[in-house]
Amino acid sequence: MKCDTKKWYWLNEPATWHLNDGKLQVVTDHKSDFWQTTWYDFQRHSGHVYGCEVEGDFTFQVCVEGDYTTLYDQAGLMLIQNEQHWLKAGIEFNDAQPMIGSVLTNPCSDWATGVFTGHAGRFWLRLTLANGALRLQYSCDGEHWPLLRLCPFSAASCNFIGIMCCTPEREGLAVTFSDMRISPPLGKALHDLS
């Protein structure tokens, strides 16, 4: 089912954004980011997230389009319980190329990243939260969904889920989000890539 964006709201609303016919276009503000302590010893909670509160288990899916050129340019999805418990995932520019990755914060941030074999300018993400576990998948074509991350995620009566974009080193990354869907959790087997 498509998302009812009338119930959605911003965490750190950017100066420039537009929602039309189910497509959200965003331009990032200067030095926006999410990170908690690890390695760099700073705390940031200034990135842009547009989402809604969801009770119980669910699956969220989105298509993301952007042109990542500067260190730490990033866009994807984000699941938040509070400033010390969240996950963000998507494309992030590092090591001179767009990489696929995720950051789980509980309460300090980790960072898992790898080479993205598809076209980073357009990709999909799918997050399923069910039975205290988080299953994160990505897709280059919207059809084939490899696993990106499987991890425990503590239960909460309500979570905030949505799209995310940040530019810790600049401003001006333009991102388009579409095909945003929230549904009951997909009951597919772990290695079912459909």
Rank of each mutant, 00 (worst) to 15 (best):
T176A: 02
S194R: 11
D21Q: 15
W124T: 00
T128D: 13
H191Y: 04
L77N: 01
E169K: 04
F58P: 01
G118E: 14
K88E: 11
M180D: 05
G47Q: 07
V49L: 12
C166P: 00
F42L: 06
K7I: 10
A156H: 06
K88T: 05
V103G: 10
G162N: 09
D179A: 02
Y138E: 01
A133V: 09
T70G: 03
L104F: 14
L24V: 14
D192P: 02
T105H: 01
G121L: 14
I161H: 06
D110C: 05
D57Y: 08
D95Y: 07
L125E: 05
D192S: 02
W39L: 10
D33A: 15
D57E: 11
R135I: 10
A112M: 07
H191Q: 05
K2T: 09
L125Y: 06
F34C: 03
L24K: 01
N106V: 03
C63T: 13
C165L: 11
A75S: 14
D33Q: 11
S157A: 02
L136V: 13
A15T: 14
S178A: 14
N82Q: 06
L193C: 08
K2I: 13
W86F: 09
S157Q: 14
I161S: 00
T167H: 06
E65M: 14
A75E: 13
G118R: 09
F153C: 09
Q61R: 08
E169G: 01
N82T: 03
A89N: 00
E83H: 14
L127I: 06
P168N: 12
C140M: 07
Y68C: 12
N82S: 07
V26Y: 10
D29G: 11
G162L: 13
Q137E: 09
C63W: 00
P107C: 12
T176G: 08
L79D: 00
Y50Q: 03
D21F: 08
S157C: 09
T69S: 12
W17T: 02
L104C: 01
L148N: 13
T5C: 01
A75V: 07
D33P: 00
E55W: 09
T113H: 06
G90S: 00
Y9Q: 07
L127N: 02
E143V: 10
W39R: 04
P98F: 00
T113Q: 06
H48D: 08
T113G: 07
G187M: 03
P168K: 01
D33M: 12
A120N: 04
K88I: 06
N131M: 15
A112Q: 05
T37Q: 12
D95F: 04
L11W: 08
W111L: 11
Q61E: 08
D179M: 10
N94R: 04
Q36N: 06
L127A: 13
H119M: 10
T16E: 12
R44S: 13
L71H: 03
W145H: 08
